[in-house]
Simulated scan of single mutants.
Amino acid sequence: MRMKLAATAAIALTALPLAASADGEVNIYSYRQAYLLEPLLNAFEKETGIKSNVVFAKQGLAERLEREGRNSPADVVMTVDISRLNELVERDLVQDVDNDVLEKNIPENLRHPDGKWFALTTRARLIYTSKERVKEGEITTYEQLADDKWDNRICTRSGKHPYNIALISSMIAHHGEAETETWLNGVKDNLARRPQGGDRDQIKAIAEGVCDVSIGNSYYYGNMLQDENQRPAAEAVRLVFPNADGRGTHINISGISLTKSAPNRDNAVKLMEFLSSPEAQGIYATANTEYPANPNVKPTGLVAEWGEIQPDSLSLQTIAENRNAAVKLVDRVDYDGE
């Protein structure tokens, strides 16, 4: 049964019985929202004639794949954050893809060494600063977030959120656990309030004068600028691309994996190839103010206006491998505590 894409809330996991194998179709399990995928999958069907069946969910896809086992109808999983992609690998739910098109379109540091996942878009983990209370150039690195001058001036979401865990994992890769623990303690000491909310809430907190500095993903800022009600808060902050003059700004990804079962494997690989193509990369990145993963595709719209990004070339697989250490470190410093 084919489900029409709808820009609505996530559909319950049990709501969509998918036929395992069907000519000219591909089955997708997705954490990505409907409005992001609709133009992509419409373009894919127009180009290839292959129809897409989609299950949207906010959580639980890995568990569903485990329950379904080899009988799962899912061909691919589309998700955000390296930790969720790595979870699929660790649970042995996805298979290797050795494909020249994907390896040409997606840089080595943005794909699994054995092709178990491929990035489709990237997002920068930025520093937001108050335009009124922080001078331009006053903070330029993640390391400076621990400086005493920011005492009682920083807001963040939970240290245990995957986006912050990925950033901490990258710090461990660059500095080691001991130095990163000292740094994270310093950031905690500088917090203006207990970690809470999401990335948008940190921007709002700066606009309201609760704090002067925060950390957040680039696309949240872009999305707020396009929302009439949230634009004033976004316009009150300045974007800082940390470590641009050094190792580069930490990035995370949205990505795709081919499931172990993949009853429509050939169609699924065609979808993966299409999503890495310049046409699809342009559509996908623009829809959520993200950066294309394909280096031959330039950012557009608001993202292009922010200027060229100098991304950290650290392998996302290395970040994934440091995740457990980062989680333990957050607990050790009691980052989310009083």
Rank of each mutant, 00 (worst) to 15 (best):
E181I: 05
G216I: 10
E108K: 13
R64G: 06
V89H: 08
E90A: 10
R32I: 15
G137V: 01
P195R: 01
N53S: 04
P73K: 11
E38N: 11
E273C: 10
D212C: 02
E25R: 08
D212E: 14
I319Y: 05
I319C: 02
E235R: 06
L36H: 12
E235A: 11
S158P: 08
K46E: 12
L120K: 14
V55E: 05
I319M: 07
L145Y: 00
G307E: 06
I127Y: 04
S254Y: 11
K260G: 04
R67C: 07
N288K: 13
L258W: 00
P162G: 09
E279R: 13
H112Q: 10
R91C: 02
S276I: 08
D189G: 08
N294Y: 06
I319T: 12
A234F: 09
H175C: 09
G246C: 00
Y163R: 12
S277L: 07
S83R: 09
A74F: 15
M1W: 04
L61C: 05
V297L: 03
A173P: 04
V76S: 01
E63Y: 11
G49M: 11
E132D: 15
R32C: 10
S257A: 13
A146Q: 08
A262C: 00
Y128E: 07
R200I: 14
V213N: 03
Q202A: 12
I256D: 11
Q202W: 02
L225P: 13
E321M: 10
D331G: 13
K116Y: 11
T318S: 07
A34T: 13
W150K: 01
D151S: 14
S218I: 15
V76M: 02
P107E: 09
A10S: 08
L329T: 12
E177V: 14
E103R: 12
K260Y: 04
R231Q: 13
Q33P: 04
S277H: 08
P39G: 06
D201Y: 13
E25G: 02
W183C: 10
A173I: 07
L302D: 11
P107H: 03
D336K: 01
L167Q: 04
V210T: 12
A280H: 09
A280V: 10
I203W: 07
E177D: 10
S257G: 02
L40H: 09
A304W: 05
